[in-house]
Amino acid sequence: MTSIATPLMWTLFTAFVLIALAIDFLALNRQGSHTVSMREATIWSLIWVAVSFLFVGWLWWYLGGTGVDPALRELADAKALEFVTGYLVEKALAVDNIFVFLMIFTYFAVPAPFQKRALMIGILSALVLRAVMILIGAWLIVRFHWLMYVFGAFLLFTGVKMWRAAGQEPDLGNNPALRWVNKRMKVSPDYDGENFFTTAHGVRMATPLLVVILLIGIVDVVFAVDSIPAIFAITTDPFIVLTSNVFAILGLRAMYFLLAGMHERFHLLSYGLAVILVFIGAKMLLIDIYKIPIAWSLGFTVTALLVAMALSLKIPAKPGASGTAFPFKPKPKAKSAAENKE
């Protein structure tokens, strides 16, 4: 699979990500456990968005966007547009992740000061897992072009399923991932600070915080199955696919605290995301018949999100609506993790 990236570009991008994560970890350790304010979340969200657009500005310049060669300017414009479109699609799909993270934190009653570290560890695992999945996906698409049709059909199915599930109240207690964790480890009913393990009545067991970390990682893998095929519908350049994903994820923690208190206000957002997935799935299925321009994909994505947000503000939410489409089918209520240990 061809890519515009040179070894220098890969090196600079990797170095930037490592430095950004190091700064984030140092800031996290220095601040310690604390409740993230709306002001702090807003500042960090704006910083990550600004950094993402500074990156695409540098990419456009590096590829010759300001040069005199028309071919290089055209290439720079195309790759910059691919990055922005992919970034916005991944950012939009990440909103559903955020609402599910909120549901997990609420279900396990995670104290607000502990949520920041839990999200940081979850984001680290997401970066590694998505990088692996993107590289595997790129390798498969090169060798088996027909997989584009499989991905397209899958996105269509997922979009329809998300539309039908939007607004339903999910039942995390019967989540198969949670049941799997409960069967394989003893979980303490209480937290022990930010520790992942504790000793209760002489028995070594995991704390609920460890279960939360595991569930966040599992949820991200589930959502990555949707989002990664979606980005391949926009571009097959591994460098653009990976960088747009990484930049969208890097700002996920700050965006969580920014949107956590607004999930009920944008209760129709899942419908907008479902429409986007159906559109992208159709684009993949038509790839050998008609290639929909990237600019159209960008315009459609922005329009769908704005319409969903505007309707959310105009139409009141139904009582009990969650505002998210959790990817596991709700089942009859079961005992919680703490109740199963009693």
Rank of each mutant, 00 (worst) to 15 (best):
A22E: 11
I23N: 12
I23F: 14
I23C: 12
D24R: 04
D24F: 13
L26P: 12
L28K: 05
R30T: 12
G32H: 08
H34A: 03
V36K: 09
V36E: 09
S37V: 05
S37T: 13
M38H: 15
R39H: 08
T42E: 03
W44F: 14
S45P: 10
L46V: 00
L46T: 00
L46D: 00
W48P: 07
S52R: 10
S52W: 06
F53S: 01
F53G: 00
L54Y: 06
F55C: 07
V56Q: 00
G57S: 01
G57E: 00
W58R: 03
W58M: 01
W58V: 04
L59H: 00
L59Y: 04
W60H: 07
W60N: 02
W61M: 09
W61E: 04
L63S: 06
G64R: 01
G64H: 01
G65P: 04
T66M: 14
T66I: 15
T66L: 15
G67W: 03
G67T: 01
D69R: 11
D69F: 15
A71T: 12
L72Y: 08
E74P: 10
L75W: 12
D77W: 15
D77R: 14
A78M: 06
K79M: 12
E82W: 11
F83S: 02
V84F: 08
T85E: 06
G86Y: 09
G86R: 01
Y87S: 05
Y87H: 00
L88R: 03
L88I: 06
V89F: 11
V89G: 06
E90Y: 11
K91G: 14
A92R: 06
L93C: 11
A94P: 09
D96P: 06
D96H: 04
N97T: 08
I98N: 05
I98T: 07
F99V: 11
F99W: 10
F101L: 13
F101N: 06
M103N: 14
M103I: 13
M103R: 10
I104Q: 02
F105D: 05
F105C: 03
F108R: 00
F108I: 03
F108K: 03
A109V: 10
V110D: 01
V110H: 02
F114N: 06
Q115V: 13
Q115R: 09
K116E: 07
K116V: 10
R117G: 08
L119W: 13
I121T: 04
G122W: 03
I123A: 05
S125V: 15
A126Y: 07
A131H: 07
V132D: 04
V132P: 03
V132W: 05
I134Q: 02
I134C: 02
I134V: 05
I134W: 07
L135V: 13
I136T: 01
G137F: 03
W139K: 05
W139I: 08
W139D: 09
W139E: 09
L140V: 15
I141V: 11
V142L: 13
V142C: 08
R143A: 12
R143I: 09
F144A: 10
W146Y: 05
